[in-house]
Design a protein around this nucleic acid. Structure first.
Lengths: 141, 141
DNA sequence: ATCTATCGGCTACAATTGTAAACTATAAAT
DNA sequence: ATTTATAGTTTACAATTGTAGCCGATAGAT
């Protein structure tokens, strides 16, 4: 797995392709028009960049292409969340997750699932998380 | 609060200032040398940009400046996590949080705190979360 | 057989980011 | 009083991103 960077605008395109594929550029553009005031050309540029980055695969179909995702949404999401997690001291991760938890509505099922994971983790949880920051980048030491 | 964008490299600088302030550019640079192969000039550029963006305040002290954060780490972290959350369908947020939870070690205290929040939220949790995506950007409908 | 709508690709261009050298002003050393 | 080290500022320059126009090829219409 490589660590390709995918920009916010590109992400919008990926979401469409993850949802429906194979899909044409025209259809992608049509769908995104609901949300973004992009010209068709803009969408095409983003698609082109995603193809170049290896995030989309193409299948020729007459004069046009059908696009499909080359990575799953979960993989990309994982990437993105690791990025965020890496921005804070490991000892602050709990607080970060609390923030996210508090800011959004979750379903009963979601909450139960989270609960289960937490139960599980409590079995082997340390008293205190090891901080891996360099001195001066967190207040742990 | 405005929605200023703060880049990854700038974030590294902010972390130092959040940890210790007021602080001089030289000291910031010294601390970051542990982690980044940046020339002093590079750090100074980043500091300059952060000042311009209003993320750092300055207090003149002789020929040099003492820098302090203009926003808290929590505020910025909140910003950053909202960004991530906004990248997925609201109905997928649970899954996203699960991912994060699973990928990191948390302390007993962290876990208990999360548990408490979850208990709380369960009181008013809906059966299913409302999806606010445009058609074609998630698989809800 | 020719025209036309359209497709993907190429080009464009400003803003942001990563990285840093050069410049200017000045505090400190001699 | 000069020199020198250094602090912040300006300039630089390539890569990425946001945004889009234009162009050459071709499938479909006439």
């Amino acid at each position: 797995m490589k660590d390709i960077q995918i920009s916010p605008s590109e992400w919008e395109v990926m979401r469409v392709v993850w949802t429906t594929h194979p899909i044409t550029s025209k259809e992608i553009s049509r769908i995104l028009n609901e949300k973004k005031d992009w010209k068709l050309a803009t969408t095409k540029t983003l698609i082109g960049r995603l193809v170049k980055k290896g995030m989309l695969t193409t299948a020729q179909n007459g004069r046009q292409y059908d696009y499909s995702p080359a990575v799953t949404e979960d993989e990309s999401l994982k990437e993105a969340s690791e990025h965020l997690l890496n921005q804070v001291c490991t000892r602050k991760v709990g607080e970060l997750i609390e923030m996210m938890l508090e800011s959004r509505t979750l379903s009963i099922k979601d909450l139960e699932s989270l609960e289960k994971i937490i139960q599980m983790k409590k079995e082997n949880a340390p008293e205190v998380v090891v901080c891996g920051c360099i001195p001066g980048q967190c207040t742990c030491s």
